[in-house]
Design a binder for these strands. Structure first.
Length: 275
DNA sequence: CGTGCGGCCTGAATGC
DNA sequence: TGCATTCAGGCCGCAC
């Protein structure tokens, strides 16, 4: 489930390789991944050159010529993988195959088919409600800006962390991990948290995201970066997926509950509900 | 405004 | 062994 650190890692790996490459051939094996017909997709892409690869929230954007953008959302199980040779395995979940004039292939692979690939001009991209509605990048926020986003909400803190329109790129893993590090119960209403606690959360969130990027992201099942390398951050998990295991800080057994419909793991000792 | 649920989809894990 | 159920989760649309 690629979140900000995984998407950032993929983006960095692809941005070292793809710029300058030109699409020679595009094979659509599952058109449900696209926002247009397979034919229109191919017609618009072929002979287009990739200029840059960047990330916004959980989106990966390939800038092409003439204000055209190829945008990927990997959702839970998507992969975007560069293959330099022609000896790669064609899997039944490889939905899009892009071949370059210069060398190599870019493969969009998505077991669960939740992910998508949209071809958009600049106007369409910037007017797209999801894109336009994305909140700020957590790594670009200073503590005051972070506090401002959260302090007035009456919603539970984890719900707001997961809300892409409030802050972009956080998913279930990094919500649980940052709340654990900050010592905040995930169901705490934001407005019950004072400035110091929100500042602490701001620091914890940035720390968790940066350490995960450093570790190449988290690999649970599907995730690999743009070159096929798995991440290592799962070994550093303090909370996510550790229900019933002892807290690495205080040895209390971790508990779980549902917040915003998602499984949430926390330490009842380190993350008390009442402050 | 906030919450909760169903739907989309597949495969791994679990239950009988 | 083999079948059915449950779970995972990002995001949307909808009901309350």
């Amino acid at each position: 489930m690629p979140e900000l650190p995984e998407v950032e890692t993929i983006t960095r790996s692809l941005d070292k390789i793809l710029p300058g490459k030109v699409f020679q051939q595009v094979t659509v094996r599952y058109s449900g991944s696209l926002n247009c017909s397979s034919q229109a997709f191919k017609d618009q892409l072929i002979k287009q050159r990739i200029n840059q690869v960047w990330r916004r929230g959980k989106l990966i954007v390939l800038d092409l010529k003439e204000n055209l953008h190829l945008v990927f959302h990997l959702k839970m199980s998507g992969r975007l993988l560069y293959e330099s040779g022609s000896d790669w395995q064609l899997d039944k979940h490889s939905h899009l195959i892009f071949e370059f004039y210069e060398q190599g292939y870019l493969i969009f692979h998505d077991t669960r088919k939740f992910g998508y690939c949209s071809l958009l001009n600049s106007n369409a991209l910037y007017q797209w409600t999801y894109f336009a509605g994305l909140g700020p990048e957590p790594l670009d926020l200073n503590e005051d800006e972070f506090v401002h986003i959260f302090q007035k909400s009456r919603a539970r803190i984890k719900s707001v962390l997961l809300d892409q329109s409030k802050i972009a790129g956080i998913g279930n893993i990094y919500a649980d991990e940052s709340l654990h590090e900050a010592g905040i119960h995930p169901a705490t209403p934001c407005c019950q948290l004072d400035q110091d606690r929100l500042r602490k959360l701001s620091l914890s969130l940035k720390g968790v995201l940066l350490r995960s990027i450093q570790a190449g992201g988290t690999t649970l099942r599907d995730y690999v970066d743009g070159l096929g390398n798995p991440g290592n951050y799962q070994n550093g998990f303090m909370a996510y997926g550790r229900k019933g295991l002892p807290c690495k800080t205080c040895s209390t057994l971790l508990e779980s509950c549902k917040v915003a419909g998602r499984t949430t793991v926390y330490c009842p000792q380190c993350q008390p509900l009442s402050i």
